[in-house]
Design a protein around this nucleic acid. Structure first.
Length: 777
DNA sequence: GGGTGTCTGCTTTTT
DNA sequence: GCAGACACCC
């Protein structure tokens, strides 16, 4: 049995968690709640351990219990545990759950956080060792893009042909792989902007250093460099972290992997928890291989598989397992449940996305009448554009919903502006923030003025704000802008003087008012203005909780989210990616059509690997459901503004027929004649998937298989291909001809553009439709 | 410096 | 089909 650590060894602040945990160690009540595999994962404390945790097998429980167990057995004190997650949400949850297990005081787990937050914390302590000052700024994507734009312009690169976004993406990819400018393979470095890629990356890094700034990728990369170049620092952290835990290990990118390996090779007490079947972030650098090669990196590693599923009913689990079995290169797990089979998941074909929303809306209303809690209902989509249709429908129905993962609070224009003001106050040389607000609200400091500032700044190698201070004293600027700029600089000095004496929220209010920023929105007559003012108020309110301005700004740059009040029970609408780690009684999965899911881009860009990642995404979707799972596909969907006919997703075919029920849409019958006729052959369809669309899908896939990857890539498009082939043949229709469209009814052709027709529909007005969708009327 | 017209591109998105 | 970026004009 483990030796309880005397409480005296803890400072009073940590006493709570540790004392309580030690007291519990004798009885180990939290261990009793685990199954044998979970228990093995929790009790195997020393040495490397990989926990392969299938969906719904109690992964978080294992992680949190493990922490509680380490504390209870006095193997480490809270600040000697490094626990890494991917999202702030996951970190918060873990902290809360450890607290529930081991009592209050979980804040003593000061090294529980995201890779980025922990890196930032380490970097601030040793900033000077990597050429930064400890108050460095963390740039977000927007700052990053603006900076890159400047770099591109300075290098005379046509930013039309080589957009800053693309460069940002490329640099990000390099950073994800742990590559500094010098380490980028020569071939790749040349791939951007006619061979300038590597140089641009290097210049960008230089600019960051000059600004005393880092981007997100740098947080990891610079920490890595810090460790590599300072053995003593590395050693210190290796000693400090007695136990290391990593959540969602399948999502680590190379930089994170190197970071982790470096630290973990000290004491080798590293526990990674992950599920290769749920790796869906390959597109942002995650390397599933990290999980596959764990044993190689940590010889003697133990592996524990968690396969007992506590979440879903038998049929749902069977559907998920059967689906994911189509992937190659898995570590392979067989999930099982001892629970009931439950209802079979359903697959429903609908005419178009509108009907899809209608059918799902009605279905939810029905469940609601039966007492279903709306918080336990979710609609999981592949792409966010799908959300709108559901929102529209739910507004009409008066069905409460929440969209998760929409535009985030701190990314809103007005919030970013306000933050830029605060950054200027807190960080006098924050040029990017300064540039953002120097002429917001408009005060006559436009491009011309800024150009003068920039010129001087570059030539004298001083920050923009410094340049401003110098130039207000000279004749370089015209009198009016000069006076304005002088006033602005004086304002900033004044606000800065208040930092230590004024609470940060009051200071923020003052800055926003005195700068004229609030007034700008009060004068704005657009409908959004009121909401923006609300958001500004919310921002000021949110600041209260922080110790000071700097603390608040650090939070904002690392945690781009705010907690949403759980005021009402609502249906959740979110992307499949956003749903990872969550569970719901009832899950709707709309849009299972070729091209959308699996997404065409995924297939085009990454071939088989792309398809497998899409399949894992499908698996994630299916395994979110506890009791009810309802999958939909539409025969028609509007893509880039054009109605296109679609074919059912190949993933439908990969569901086990015996565990899935094919049903008719609830709302189909009320939706006019074609809706019904469309599904008149539902019976035969139901058992054999024998609709024309389905057969076409099969045929397409067959031919794709035979003719290799290139053809496969094009294959799903062929059906659309023939109708999309523009200008190959003249249209069957002429202007003035009467036509009939299945969706819009009768109309008159107004214009012909290749195979696209503009038709004035009698009821629906003018629409652009594809020729093949109308009949001579 | 601000407003209007035109062009482009278009998954997922955390930190 | 629509938003966002940019160029051009006033």
């Amino acid at each position: 049995m483990t030796r309880p650590l005397p409480t005296e060894e803890f400072t009073p602040r940590e006493g709570g968690i540790a004392a309580r945990a030690s007291a519990l160690a004798g009885r180990n009540p939290f261990l009793d709640a685990l199954n044998p595999e979970q228990r093995a994962a929790v009790e195997t404390i020393d040495g490397p351990l990989l926990v392969l945790a299938g969906a719904g097998t109690g992964k978080t429980r294992v992680l949190t219990t493990r922490i509680a167990h380490i504390l209870a057995s006095a193997k480490a004190r809270p600040w000697e545990i490094l626990a890494v997650t991917f999202t702030n949400k996951a970190a918060r949850e873990m902290r809360e759950r450890v607290e529930t297990l081991a009592g209050p005081g979980a804040e003593a787990l000061q090294w529980l956080g995201t890779f980025h937050a922990i890196s930032a914390k380490i970097l601030r302590r040793h900033a000077e060792l990597v050429g930064l000052k400890s108050n460095f700024t963390i740039l977000d994507t927007d700052d990053q893009i603006r900076l890159l734009k400047q770099v591109l312009q300075a290098e005379n690169v046509d930013d039309k042909r080589w957009p800053p976004r693309a460069l940002a993406h490329q640099i990000d990819a390099w950073k994800n792989r742990g590559l500094s400018p010098a380490q980028v393979p020569a071939g790749e470095a040349r791939s951007f902007a006619d061979g300038k890629g590597g140089k641009l990356y290097a210049l960008y890094q230089e600019r960051l250093k000059a600004l005393n700034a880092v981007d997100f990728g740098d947080l990891l990369l610079e920490a890595l460099r810090l460790f590599r170049e300072n053995a003593d620092v590395l050693d210190d952290y290796r000693q400090r972290f007695r136990y290391i835990l990593v959540d969602e290990y399948q999502d680590t990118n190379t930089a994170q992997y190197l970071w982790l390996r470096l630290i973990a090779q000290g004491r080798h007490n590293v526990c990674c928890v992950g599920d290769d079947d749920q790796s869906v972030y390959g597109w942002r650098g995650a390397e599933v291989e990290n999980i596959l090669r764990f044993e190689k990196d940590f010889p003697g590693a133990k592996i524990v598989r968690l396969e007992r599923n506590y979440r879903s009913t038998g049929h749902i689990l069977a559907a998920a397992s059967h689906l994911i079995a189509h992937n190659e290169g898995r570590l392979g797990k067989t999930l099982f449940t001892e629970g009931a089979d439950g209802d079979k998941p359903t697959v429903t074909g609908v005419w178009d996305s509108e009907e899809e929303a209608r059918a799902i809306g009605e279905d939810i209303e029905q469940l609601q009448r039966k007492g279903q809690d709306l918080d336990e209902v979710a609609i999981l989509v592949r792409a966010s554009f799908q959300m709108r249709e559901f929102e529209d429908r739910f507004i009409t129905l008066g069905l409460p919903y929440r969209v998760i993962g929409g535009p985030r609070f701190y990314e809103r224009l007005e919030i970013r502006d306000a933050l830029a003001y605060l950054r200027c106050v807190a960080q006098p040389f924050d040029d990017l923030a300064f540039e953002r607000i120097v002429n917001t609200p408009k005060r006559g400091l436009g491009d011309a003025t800024l150009q003068v500032l920039h010129d001087y700044s570059r030539q004298a190698s001083v920050p923009l704000t410094q340049a401003a201070r110098v130039l207000v004293e000279t004749e370089e600027l015209k009198p009016k802008p000069r006076a304005t700029l002088r006033n602005l600089m004086a304002d900033f000095d004044r606000w800065r003087g208040l930092i230590d004496t004024t609470p940060q929220n009051e200071l923020a209010e003052l800055v926003l008012d005195e700068s004229g920023y609030t007034q700008m929105w009060r004068d704005d007559k657009t409908p959004e203005a009121a909401g923006r003012l609300e958001n500004l108020k919310e921002l000021v309110r949110a600041m209260e909780e922080f110790p000071d301005l700097a603390g608040f700004l650090e939070h904002v740059s690392l945690v781009m989210e705010t907690d949403e009040a759980a005021d009402q029970r609502r249906v959740s609408i979110m992307t499949l990616h956003g749903a990872k780690g969550l569970e719901f009684e009832t899950v709707y999965l709309p849009g299972w059509e070729e091209g959308l899911f699996p997404h065409q881009r995924s297939l085009d860009d990454n071939g088989r690997a792309g398809l497998e990642e899409e399949r894992r995404l499908a698996y994630v979707g299916v395994t979110r459901a506890k009791r009810r799972l309802k999958i939909f596909f539409a025969t028609n969907r509007r893509i880039h503004g054009l109605w296109q006919s679609t074919i059912p997703s190949r993933f439908l075919d990969e569901l086990p027929a015996s565990d899935v029920e094919v049903t008719e849409a609830a709302g189909a019958s009320q939706y006019g004649s074609y809706g019904v006729s469309r599904f008149a052959n539902m019976d035969s369809y139901g058992s054999s998937y024998s609709t024309p669309g389905w057969k076409r899908a099969q045929a397409t896939r067959e031919s794709a298989r035979e003719s290799g990857p290139a053809a496969r890539r094009r294959a799903p498009l062929t059906i659309q291909g023939e109708v999309l082939a523009k200008s190959t043949s003249s249209s069957r229709f002429a202007v003035g001809v009467r036509v009939f469209h299945q969706k819009f009814g009768p109309g008159t052709v107004a214009a012909v553009d290749g195979n696209k027709l503009s038709v004035d529909f009698d009821k629906a007005g003018r629409k652009m439709v594809l020729e093949s969708f109308v009949e001579q009327g």
